[in-house]
Design a protein around this nucleic acid. Structure first.
Lengths: 154, 154
DNA sequence: TGGAAGTGCTACGTTGGTGTGGCAGTAAGG
DNA sequence: CCTTACTGCCACACCAACGTAGCACTTCCA
C-alpha cells in the first residue's frame, strides 16, 4: 500500500480514504481491467465481424489494455471470486471466437481449440509486455501474422 | 517457510538446519534449475546439431525441467544476482541458437530474433504449464510444429 | 549401552505490512 | 470570514512471517 501510494503521488491515508482495504483496491483494479476487456470485445465485434477482421481488431485493442492493467490472474482467482467468475466468462467468450475462427477456416482444425486459444493469449502477452515499443496496430500486425503463418521459413 | 516445510513433510526447524535463510533456499532452487537447463542444452547439442533436431531435443528436454522448477525469473532477478547472471548467459546461448536457426533457414529472417526467441519461450511455457498431460515428446512435437507452421489454416 | 546425528515441537524476538485515529494545513465556495 | 472537504503527517495497534533457541525424542552405529 505504501508502494502504491508513492507511485500515485499521494499519502497512504488518502488511499485508505478511497479504498477501505487493500483487497478493495485490488478488486477495483480487476474490475477496471474487466470493463476495458469488455469494451475491446465490443469494439472488435468478436461474435459477428469476419473472423480475420475481428481477430486483428481484438489484438489491437487488447494490447494496450494488457499494458495498462497487467493484472495477475492467479491473484484475482484467490482474492476476488466475483471478478474471477467474470474473467472466466470473458475467457469462454474468447474460446467461442476461436471456435468460430476454426469453423470459418481461419484457424486450423487439427489442433485442440484450447491450444489455439493458449497460443493466442501468449503471443498477445508477449507483444504487450516484452515489446512495449510496438504500437498497438503494429503489434496486432505482427501477432496475427506470426500466429497464422508461424516463424518457420517457408 | 511453513508452507514449504509442510509440502516437504518436515518441520520448519529442519528446513532452517539445511538453509540458513529463505533466500538461501531460493538460491538453491534457482541453481538446481539452472543446472538442469545446462544439462538440457548439452543433451540437445544446441550449438552443433542440425537446428531442426536440436530444436526438438531442446523443447523435449526443457518441458520437464520447466515443470519441475517453475521458478519466477523476476524473483530470481531481485533475490539472487549470481543466479540471474547465469540465467542471462543461458538466455544469450539460446539467442545464438535462434540466430543459427535463422541462418540455416529453419526460422524466418524477416522477423527480429528477439521476437522469434520470445515466441519460442512462450509456446514452451504454455505446453509445460497449461498442457501438463502432454508427455514431453508429444509436447515437443506440438510446440515445434505449431511454432514453425503457425495456427492458421493453409 | 552410550554417543552422535538428526528431527519435531514450542515459545520467543524481530521486522515489515495492514489498517486506524487524530490533528494541522490548504483550497474552495457561500 | 467561516464552513466544508480533502490531504499529508505521524504515531500506534495488530498480525503474519522470518529466524532462533532449547529440549525431548528417535535412530543408528560402534
Amino acid at each position: 500500500m505504501s508502494t502504491i501510494a508513492s507511485a500515485a503521488g499521494v499519502d497512504r491515508r488518502t488511499v485508505y480514504r478511497r479504498f477501505a482495504t487493500r483487497e478493495a483496491l485490488l478488486s477495483a483494479v480487476f474490475m477496471a481491467k474487466l470493463d476495458n476487456v469488455d469494451l475491446v470485445f465490443e469494439q472488435a465485434r468478436l461474435d459477428e465481424a469476419p473472423v480475420q477482421v475481428a481477430l486483428h481488431r481484438y489484438v489491437e485493442g487488447i494490447v494496450p489494455v494488457s499494458r495498462q492493467w497487467p493484472v495477475d490472474m492467479h491473484r484475482m482467482m484467490r482474492g476476488d471470486p466475483t471478478a474471477y467468475a467474470r474473467a472466466r466468462e470473458q475467457s469462454r467468450r474468447l474460446d467461442r471466437f476461436v471456435e468460430r475462427a476454426v469453423d470459418e477456416g481461419l484457424f486450423r482444425d487439427d489442433l485442440p481449440v484450447g491450444w489455439l486459444r493458449a497460443l493466442l493469449d501468449q503471443v498477445v502477452s508477449t507483444a504487450a509486455h516484452q515489446f512495449t515499443d510496438l504500437a498497438p496496430p503494429e503489434a496486432a500486425d505482427r501477432v496475427v501474422e506470426s500466429l497464422l503463418n508461424g516463424i518457420g521459413s517457408h
